[in-house]
Design a binder for these strands. Structure first.
Lengths: 144, 144
DNA sequence: CAGGATCCTCTTAGATACTG
DNA sequence: CAGTATCTAAGAGGATCCTG
């Protein structure tokens, strides 16, 4: 168990910054920062849902609210602003009556979308297995 | 702007569960659950760092603590237990003196590792661009 | 319609001290 | 060495009301 074949991928990320001499050791602060950065972007409760919804094209504020069940106005506004600040989407307000505002993924946002969808795909693929492990773990810790 | 070519990827995730008739509409609760599930696994502050450290092979508790700067004993223990419950790593205690406990990625954990590293790679690739957007956004909202 | 402003609650996570 | 227990601060997130 514990094959050592996949750690080359981990090394690749570390090597992306600068060469790591030792066999492993510890995380550079810079490597950890990349993890934190992407987690700060999509690690919250709503970002991925918003990005996924915007994949279908420009969407209005109220349509986003309708497409994402359970989100509050506050969180929708906050998350949109956050994503806009990081350049993942653009906000376009049309000076009409009634007002209309459309949100649209940028190229950066779309490039993140595909990566994030891979994560969602992983979840869908291994969902059953994860549930099995959870049940096994819970019954094991309960019986002990 | 706003090309509509990448939404096929989003559809793929949705289609993974069951066929969606309409052109887009809204998130199914089940689709959102997959996002939430994977976010619950690796969306926190330490999980990815731990998984990345374990990519180099079985690692002891104290070695993990040393490899991940800034983590507290509490969070290390908590996150390890969480990852173990979801079947991403195994805990092996050797009944020796002094006690030795090794944590090791499972196949499930390694499969997630590669996906998560893609995300970290994305962050490394677009780090500069994101910083540019942040600066532009901040100065724009400050001057206005 | 598209938010801004407030208030409030629950979870997350850090620090510290103690134990088998 | 490898944790557990307790306390606390900070922030995420929800509900509600108000506005251009």
């Amino acid at each position: 168990m514990c094959v050592e074949g996949d750690d080359v991928a981990a090394k690749n990320v570390r090597a992306r910054v600068r060469d790591v001499p030792g066999p492993c050791a510890r995380w550079d602060d810079e490597d950890a920062d990349f993890i934190r950065e992407v987690l700060d972007l999509v690690g919250d409760k709503w970002s991925v849902l918003i990005i996924g919804t915007l994949a279908d094209g420009p969407t209005r504020y109220s349509d986003l609210a309708a497409a994402i069940p359970g989100i509050s106005q506050r969180m929708l506004t906050l998350t949109l602003k956050h994503l806009q600040r990081n350049g993942l989407l653009t906000r376009t307000a049309y000076p009409e009556v009634p007002p209309r505002v459309e949100y649209c993924l940028t190229g950066l946002g779309r490039s993140l979308l595909s990566t994030v969808l891979a994560l969602a795909g992983w979840s869908a693929d291994h969902h059953a297995e994860i549930r099995r492990h959870q049940a096994a773990f819970d019954s094991a810790t309960a019986t002990d």
